[in-house]
């Protein structure tokens, strides 16, 4: 959460709710909506580390609001983030662990594990299909995020099939 917030603040100073809305609007409903508490906690830490600073802005009939802006140190951290290659996807290995280890204990049958997992992946895919249908066709970022999730899920299914073929 830290670096996306820095990136949004590099565009313009903002308060917490504006940052929450910007994330939701950009990434759409496939992206788990950050809760406002998390955002304020993160902003607090960024402030402590000197990446952002806050100013109080008076509002006529409401309490003051805190508007955050990026410091030079914050900008440098952001630039480092942008310049580094990003870690590749990690194989989600919890199911694989289960598949390999559970049958050794005699408490599960591999075929049943694979079948149940396949149905689960396909129902997730169905959710993604529905999500894609409900997403504003103009929101390319949100649609690409959903497509990325679908491609990952397809890879998981292909892997599952390989496991079913190879493991007795």
């Amino acid at each position: 959460m830290r670096l996306p917030l820095l990136a949004l603040l590099a565009k313009e100073p903002a308060h917490g709710y504006e940052l929450k809305h910007a994330l939701e609007k950009t990434f759409g409903s496939a992206y788990p909506s950050p809760n406002i508490g998390q955002i304020y906690v993160t902003l607090g830490r960024l402030e402590k580390d000197g990446y952002v600073r806050a100013v109080d802005v008076e509002q006529s009939n409401r309490p003051n609001k805190k508007v955050y802006y990026l410091t030079a140190v914050g900008r440098e951290a952001l630039e480092n983030w942008v310049d580094e290659p990003t870690e590749g996807p990690r194989v989600r290995d919890e199911f694989f662990m289960k598949l390999v280890l559970a049958p050794l204990t005699g408490i599960a049958d591999r075929m049943a594990l694979v079948n149940r997992q396949r149905r689960h992946y396909l129902s997730l895919m169905r959710d993604l299909n529905e999500l894609a249908e409900q997403t504003d066709p103009g929101n390319r970022v949100a649609l690409l995020l959903i497509e990325g999730a679908m491609l990952h899920l397809q890879a998981d299914l292909d892997w599952l099939e390989r496991c079913q073929e190879e493991l007795p």
Binding site: M1, P4, L124, L128, I146, L153
Partner: peptide
């Protein structure tokens, strides 16, 4: 509920 497709989607940062 909207968002729990986060089972699949997780953006790091």
């Amino acid at each position: 509920p909207a968002g729990t497709v986060g089972d699949v989607v997780e953006l790091r940062g």
